[in-house]
Simulated assay, not measured.
Amino acid sequence: MTADLMPELTARIRTVAHPDAAPCTCVDGTTTLAHRPDTTVLRHAETVAKAHAPGTDPAALTLRLTTAARLPDVFLPPLTPAPAAFVDDRPVTLWPYGTPVDPDTPGAAPWEAAATLLGRLHRAPATPGTPPMRGPAKAAHAIARLRETLAGTAPHPAATPLLRAWSALPAWARGEAPMPGRPRTLCHGDLHLGQLVRHPAPDGPWRLIDVDDLGVGAPAWDLARPASWYACGLLPPDAWTRFLAAYRAAGGPAVPEDGGDPWPALDVPARALTVQTGARYLAKAIAADRPLDEVERSLIDACARMVSGG
């Protein structure tokens, strides 16, 4: 979204936040929660407006909003059942404000809440016509963007193990074919702690946000990012154990509920999320002309182990 369109989005969210046309007396005015090429999110008072990515299918987005609205014990419910407006041909959705996870208190990260919400989501029936979950497509997009970045620079040593690990994944994990022989359920598609908020703010129950990738697919994908972090040493074993136990307690179908080994189901999705995250980080590091940090190196090292058998 170009900067000159921000006033239009700001005007729309203020109208929603103050429907009686009374003068705005909000101390903080309108604040920007996110502003990237694929999304812009603004907050005014207790209302949030999100301008979705260019090319977003309004019909598919409406189905995703419908799903969120009928699962209020899982998702933050939208304020309208369809896009409320279009800005620069991009659909705009409206939401109540929720308190996000505090990144400065990692010990209080709501892993159990996230797992419980996933278990509920994976057991919920899909609305007829719900589109596919976009997780594998997002992974493929991250690889495509990395290749574009590499095309304009000198070779980077981290790219080789990463791209080899990507090529070693099965076609379904690269978004090139349906996932065979596994359960297909409603899935979030992009689960991480930034996708949880408390509503009502500031300390209501946790709810999922961001329906852009919501759809029908392999539920193991929603567990893949924490599984990847655990395998890479970025998520403590205790947090992973609590996450998995909470998911099983909620009846989640992605792993054996009897306590059996979860890794036959999680291994490939976790590998795909490791490669996806590594690709995103590497592209950003190259663009900023800086060395990889410790977390980024751990992901690249994990990719190297994937193709070496270590």
Rank of each mutant, 00 (worst) to 15 (best):
V92K: 06
H35A: 15
A59V: 15
A285G: 05
A108L: 14
A218K: 03
L196K: 11
P161Y: 07
D203H: 14
P81Q: 10
R305E: 09
A137F: 08
A288M: 04
D57N: 15
P77S: 15
R36W: 05
L118F: 06
Q276G: 04
A165L: 03
L79Y: 08
P262F: 02
T116E: 15
L5C: 07
P19A: 06
A113D: 15
D258Y: 06
A254W: 01
A154C: 03
V216F: 04
E294G: 00
A68F: 09
E148Q: 15
A283Y: 04
A159E: 08
A114E: 13
T130G: 04
V87K: 04
L208H: 07
H122M: 11
G252K: 07
L65A: 12
D57E: 09
L208W: 06
R271S: 03
A285I: 04
M6Y: 09
P180N: 09
G278S: 06
T105Y: 02
G129F: 10
A109I: 04
K138Y: 09
R280W: 01
P81V: 11
P100L: 05
E296C: 01
A171D: 14
Q276E: 14
A142P: 02
W206K: 06
L162Y: 01
R14M: 13
A53L: 10
D222T: 03
S298D: 03
P253M: 08
R147T: 03
R242L: 08
V74S: 05
L214E: 09
T30H: 03
E46A: 15
D203T: 14
A49L: 13
V74R: 04
R145M: 08
H141I: 01
